[in-house]
Nucleic acid binder design. Structure first.
Length: 377
DNA sequence: TCTGGGGTCCTAGGACCC
DNA sequence: TCTGGGGTCCTAGGACCC
């Protein structure tokens, strides 16, 4: 009997919002959204209770980073502008983001999982893939159920995460990353879903194509135009048809994905490719009229990138900028230097060279500075 | 009430080299 | 004076993800 490959995808439930609820338990069950700037910190009142800002009357360009499930019931979701969210749920509590705290909890849950299953791939602050194949017990059958062992291991991981953080997570388990990622969303929040290849037609094919990680808004719309809405619809298409319409690489991938085929390994270590800082202004700035303000922000961004590089021990050989204009058109320019740089002045100078190559007739909404071509120091 | 910030990967054309 | 075939690097944009 050869060992089965078992991959888990673990996703923390409404992560930022849930971390905030640990700090403000009186908000439990309420509609809460996280996002925006620092102007809406809770205020401790004389009677010992806290006063929270609400969405009502919010003015600005912030978006929702995370919403509690109670808030989602009002139709708000991450990525939505706070002004729009305020129209849907004015009474919802608004909290500022606190990345330091979220990173702390991120380390906590990842460390806890690693004690049960060390083969972990980082997929950002609130999710990971875990290879369970070699975890003791994962290959065991329980009665007639070959998935019983791995289900017990996954449940143990969920318990461990809750003990370490007080937070719930949702876990999907299947033979590969692609299906596990889909599975972890099937019983959210606080769920555990195990899917085998044999269950593909009944449990995966009825789902919309957009559930596949890698089919975004554009590809989803193109597929819909062709009448392809479910993963089953996609699986029914010939490989050649998909290659014809989506190109060799993406067409093949679409075909494989629809059939639940994904051989990607768990990657336990990876070096960063780039580091960047960007900011959207409170109001659109003009290159000439707001020159001084723009210049100050530009230097700050370069300095932040330099600080990030130094803190993590990298230097960047390609320095780039990003501008978004008032009409939301975005341009990038970059410049590869003879040797990698780390200091703010060198980054600022290279970024300045890039800026000269941009036509600055339109007003600017966003400015960013990026370091790529990273080398470890 | 339009649309944050930090990333990765892919494509495609041109330069340049052998 | 009609011209190959790779390979790599650089740049810009875009899709997608968390």
């Amino acid at each position: 009997m050869t060992a089965r490959r078992w991959i888990a995808h673990l996703d923390m439930d409404a992560f930022y919002a849930s971390v905030e609820l640990l700090r403000y338990p009186e908000l439990t069950g309420q509609a809460v959204v996280i996002g925006g700037g620092r102007r809406h910190q809770p205020v401790l009142q004389a009677d010992g209770t806290r006063r929270f800002a609400t969405l009502a009357g919010y003015a600005g360009r912030g978006v929702i980073t995370t919403a509690t499930y109670a808030a989602r019931d009002f139709g708000v979701h991450s990525g939505m502008g706070l002004m729009k969210a305020a129209a849907l749920a004015p009474q919802a509590v608004l909290l500022p983001v606190d990345f330091e705290q979220y990173r702390r909890y991120s380390r906590l849950f990842k460390t806890a999982v690693a004690e049960v299953a060390p083969q972990i791939e980082d997929r950002g602050i609130d999710e990971i893939y875990i290879d369970l194949s070699d975890v003791p017990g994962a290959q065991d059958s329980l009665g007639h159920d070959a998935t019983g062992g791995v289900r017990a291991v996954a449940q143990e991981i969920r318990n461990t995460v809750r003990r370490a953080t007080g937070l719930s997570c949702s876990v999907g388990v299947s033979p590969n990353k692609l299906l596990s990622k889909i599975a972890s969303e099937l019983d959210k929040p606080d769920g555990l879903t195990v899917i085998t290849q044999a269950e593909l037609p009944t449990r995966i094919w009825p789902l919309p194509v957009r559930r596949i990680n890698g089919i975004g808004p554009k590809a989803g719309a193109r597929l819909a135009d062709m009448g392809i809405r479910t993963i089953g619809n996609l699986a029914a298409k010939e490989r050649a048809f998909l290659i014809e319409h989506f190109g060799r690489s993406y067409g093949r991938w679409l075909h494989d994905a629809a059939h639940g085929i994904d051989d990607r390994l768990i990657s336990t270590r990876s070096d960063p490719v780039s580091m960047s800082r960007e900011t959207t202004f409170d109001r659109d700035l003009h290159a000439v009229r707001d020159r001084a303000e723009l210049s100050t922000i530009f230097t700050e961004l370069a300095t932040q990138v330099a600080t990030d590089l130094q803190r993590k021990g990298y230097a960047g050989r390609t320095i780039g900028i990003k501008l978004r204009f008032e009409d939301f058109k975005t341009v990038t320019r970059d410049l590869t230097l003879p040797a990698p740089v780390v200091d703010a002045a060198a980054i600022r100078h290279a970024a300045g060279q890039c800026l000269r190559r941009v036509d600055l007739a339109r007003r600017i909404r966003l400015l960013g500075v990026r370091a790529g071509g990273l080398v470890k120091l």
